[in-house]
Amino acid sequence: MTSTSRAHPIIFIHGLWIHSSAWQPWLELFEHNGYRASAPGWPGDSPSVQETRANPDAMNDIGIADIVDHYARLIDPAAPQPIVIGHSFGGLIGQELLAAGHAAAAVAIDSAAIKGAKALPFAQLKSAFPVLSNPANRHRAVALTAKQFRYAFGNTLTDEESDALHANWSIPGAGRPLFEEAGANFSRHSAATVDTHVADRGPLLLTSGTEDHVVPLKVTQQVFDLYAKGPADTDFHVFDGRGHSLTIDNGWRDVADVALDWLDSKRF
């Protein structure tokens, strides 16, 4: 079976606390493999890490719906639908775009939880504590210290590698999406709602690192179980021993190769 995936452009979507420029090695790899690829930032992001750090107020009150709408507007309806590859909250955005018919396929790498996933492991709560501990953070962007980053992202890395990733790629993250995710199961019209039963959509790959603190394996397993009750094509891949830094750390290529191989196995 010959894959048709290369007829579709790739859109990479970052998650909280990581700038879109961290996708550069992925852009180069996917373009080398015949894809047209881009990594546009969230609304409020500046073109560089330093500029974004200097202007965090541009992300004040940016929520999940704003981010979804932002990427939906970037998609050319006259062109082939894109494949969306997202990490963390980028994975949630990718799932929403796929369910709404804006994308041909999606890869959600250690994705933020959708409404319906009810597990709240301690590691997840501790990772989100720098934001959720202060209700005022709902309306502003919050940066992680190097120590907080090591717990949330770099727990499987050396302190030196984690600190280098923090220095190179970390940016303040909009607080509102975390509050929306945390209250998703208590909100009738949650912005984190995804129709997991829609039949007429392209394939979806969910992944999880077994040591992820931000989105623990148990959470992603619950999300996969929600999709498993529906008729559409949904796959699940586990990265043993990997944490939330898996798209930017020294093992990023292993994750990218899984995404490439999965896309090669699909026709859409």
Rank of each mutant, 00 (worst) to 15 (best):
G116R: 02
D212R: 02
G34H: 04
H189L: 12
E211P: 06
I10H: 00
P203N: 05
E96R: 14
T193F: 10
T247P: 00
A182N: 08
A104S: 14
D200C: 05
P216G: 08
D159F: 09
A199V: 07
L204W: 01
Q95V: 06
H19G: 06
L29A: 09
S265W: 03
V194M: 02
Y71D: 01
G15E: 00
H19N: 05
L29D: 02
S5C: 08
I109C: 07
S170N: 15
M1T: 12
W26T: 03
S127E: 11
P121G: 06
F30V: 02
Q50T: 13
A117C: 09
H8C: 04
T220R: 02
G175A: 05
D235T: 15
S190H: 04
P82M: 06
I64H: 05
H237M: 14
L29Q: 05
S3F: 05
G209A: 08
A22G: 06
G63H: 09
N168S: 15
S187P: 00
F89G: 04
H213I: 09
I11G: 00
W42V: 03
T4A: 05
N55P: 02
R176C: 06
I67M: 14
D240T: 14
H32V: 01
P56A: 03
S88T: 10
D195T: 03
P172M: 07
T220G: 04
S170Y: 07
P172C: 10
D254C: 12
P121M: 08
A79W: 10
I85G: 00
V223L: 02
Y35I: 01
A100M: 13
